[in-house]
Design a protein around this nucleic acid. Sequence first.
DNA 1: GCAAGGTC
Length: 564
Amino acid sequence: MSVHHNSLGDCQMSFTSVSGHLFNYDFYEDKRKWWSCEPKQLFTAPILQTCSDQNKYIKNTLEREAKRCSVLIIWTDCDREGENIGFEVITVCRAANPRMNIFRAHFSEITIPSITRAFNALIQPNKKVSDAVDVRQKLDLRLGAAFTRFLTLELQKLVPNLKDMYKLVSYGSCQFPTLGFVVDRFKARENFVPQKFWSIDVHYTKDNMNACFNWKRVRVFCEQSCLAVMSKVMDSPEAVVTHINTKRRTKWRPQPMDTVTFERSVSSKLKINAKRAMTVAEKLYTSGFISYPRTETNKFPPELNLVSYCQMQTASPIWGQFAQRVLTNGPNPRNGTKSDQAHPPIHPTKYAPNLNGEEKRIYELIVRHFLATLDKDAVGYETAIEISINEELFALNGLRVEEKNYLEIYTYDKWTDKDIPQFNQNERFIPDSILMTDGQTTAPELLTEAQLIALMEKHGIGTDATHAEHIEKVKDRKYIVETPDRRLKPEGLGIGLVDGYEEIGYQMSKPHLRAALEKDLKAICDGIKNPEEVLNYQIKEYEKVFNESLRHKNKLFEVVVRKI
DNA sequence: GCAAGGTC
């Protein structure tokens, strides 16, 4: 937004917009061809900012408007990338009109109170935050280009028909850790050694119900000790009820939906991939049916008019009555604690009765989730019975769901009654049977997409907008595949790359490197570290890895080639 | 033919 006046009182304003970053870093022309230089040179080769043809129109608009205005107010998202985009706008406008006064609006959602508040409390743009993004951009470009060219070209030398199988072998600071998570789980599964265990179950039929009491020690890994307990129990097999305890239990309704929750829910509950989920969400957003789908916020801002969004849903023949009930009792959101200071949680913004297919299912999930967050937790009563047989303890748990509440709308969650017979304190009985059982521990399953996204978020790999893309990329590179039961399995090339780097002593596929960078970026934002120093340090560290890859390239690629 | 981050 630019203001055509010296003060912010009585003035004319003009609004214009950008669409993501205006500029992108790239190497100069002489280094863009893959064979133009040694990949190693890309660590130090000069780089420049380029503006795509599409973005040139936006740039022209900014320049034109800047010339007519005396004040510039930046209203980009109030997150790290948003601050950087703000500075791209500032650079363009200042070049067109050096006398401009520049301000930054700080707002966390687009509601009238929030916008008004931001306008009345304009601040200065934060260069430090923007600098941190510059460091990330430059580093990602240099590392990505250098390692990707190196890996691809070297491997092509060794495997002449590589091109038929893999169009390129890439490295990226997010791709590799994403791959690493998948490989880690695969290896945990491969290397898993099952362990035998033993347990004891007590069966007793009462009130026409077969009750199975579980051993309080759950299980032991030694057959002899289980046999010892078994013989003690059989010596005097009368059970006495030692405790009866009934407790109120609640099952919590979901928290407002952020992007990661959205992707994970769609992936696990609707069996639709995260990438596809985001594409559909994008479409629902641009059609006006849902709010902005890329958000890290899981609490509703007080200014958001939940009542009106709820009201819209009362038109539905399926969940209209539920929406009405939410309105009567609340709405009563179960807020989380995360906020990206840029967007509210994902919520429906319009009733959409005419959707079909995946759009319909995804919209329905968003609405059901939204209404569920505004309702009440489910309430149940858990009865725990404890019995003692010759001093050995066994337990039986029953559940009675008293109020389903949010579960009525959030049909993806299940919480069902478990009926058990009535018992009295000190009641004695002879069990129908006391059985020693055995089993063995089972290997962890391969990762699901939902689990992988959770890991990425936990370790700071990628952003809300990019998790799904990174997963898609490592699939596209043939580092991993999706199994028929929707689990992620590494392929030979993926395992080879991870092992190859470990072989020469670098954990390129572990999340620590990216996490360390994130920490440095935070330090730049907080003014503790200098951006140039961080950049130089990071480049040097990766250059070391690169040089070692060169020095040990035989060893590195020997491992890779063996696996493909 | 490279990255990751915006966004459509």
